[in-house]
Nucleic acid binder design. Structure first.
Length: 220
DNA sequence: ATCCCGAGGG
DNA sequence: CCCTCTGGAT
């Protein structure tokens, strides 16, 4: 299954746009209950105006909110991002700490966001379990736990540490391109033969033509 | 109506 | 554990 995923998405990577760990932290905080496409729509202008923690720390929520309003949950996010920026300036010299406990202690930063920053910005071993990783990991039979934290523990066991970061992104790509929450495209999914959910779908009628989709995971 | 790279409060 | 925060896409 892991090999199949790797073959399908050889170029899986983070799709949020950022220049620094701090910018990835902000982009990830913004991505809650939103899509990365929406986040990428506002961050270029946002990071041009406010490039680092010091710039964000000087803002009021009323100044920040209009820039991120289209993303949703904007009141909470404005407050949290500014407060996080202030803590980074006061206690971490304006830098993002490479430490899980320090990250989750920041307002608006939970387990998922902390793991994204650790693995994607710093290359440290971590698996962020977001809605896609949770859903797809369970459908593919890589995990069975009923909470993101349990699924994270299972994935840590089943996946070699050197593959944690890529596999995280492959699961997300698969979730976005094929294994949707609603109406997953099992009938067009090359992984269906190894997938409990795909086999179930095939049995219950949706004739699987198994036409290996060509390069859906490759970057142009 | 349901979901999107969630987190915090009660 | 359940609720709420939020706009946009499907």
């Amino acid at each position: 299954m892991l090999d199949g995923l790797a073959a399908l998405y050889p170029d899986a990577r983070c799709e949020l746009h950022y220049e620094t760990p701090f910018q990835l932290l902000v982009a990830t905080m913004l991505s809650a209950q939103s899509t990365d496409a929406k986040v990428n729509q506002v961050t270029p202008e946002l990071f041009r105006r406010y490039p680092d923690a010091r710039a964000f720390a000087a803002l009021t929520p009323e100044e920040l909110a209009p820039h991120i309003q289209s993303i949703g949950l904007y009141r909470t996010k404005s407050k949290n991002i500014i407060e996080t920026a202030r803590i980074l300036v006061e206690r971490f010299g304006g830098e993002v700490p490479r430490d899980f406990d320090a990250l989750v202690a920041l307002p608006g930063v939970g387990r998922k966001t902390a793991n994204v920053v650790l693995s994607t910005a710093f290359g440290l071993p971590a698996i962020a379990v977001d809605t896609h990783v949770f859903r797809v990991g369970r459908r593919l039979g890589l995990a069975s736990g009923d909470t993101p934290e349990r699924v994270e523990a299972e994935l840590r066991q089943r996946i070699p540490m050197s593959e944690w970061a890529v596999t995280h992104h492959r699961l997300i790509w698969h979730g976005r391109r094929m294994c949707h929450a609603r109406a997953p495209k099992c009938d067009r999914c090359p992984l269906w033969v190894d997938c409990p959910h795909g086999l179930k779908a095939a049995r219950s009628g949706q004739k699987n033509q198994d036409p290996p989709v060509d390069n859906i995971g490759r970057v142009d």
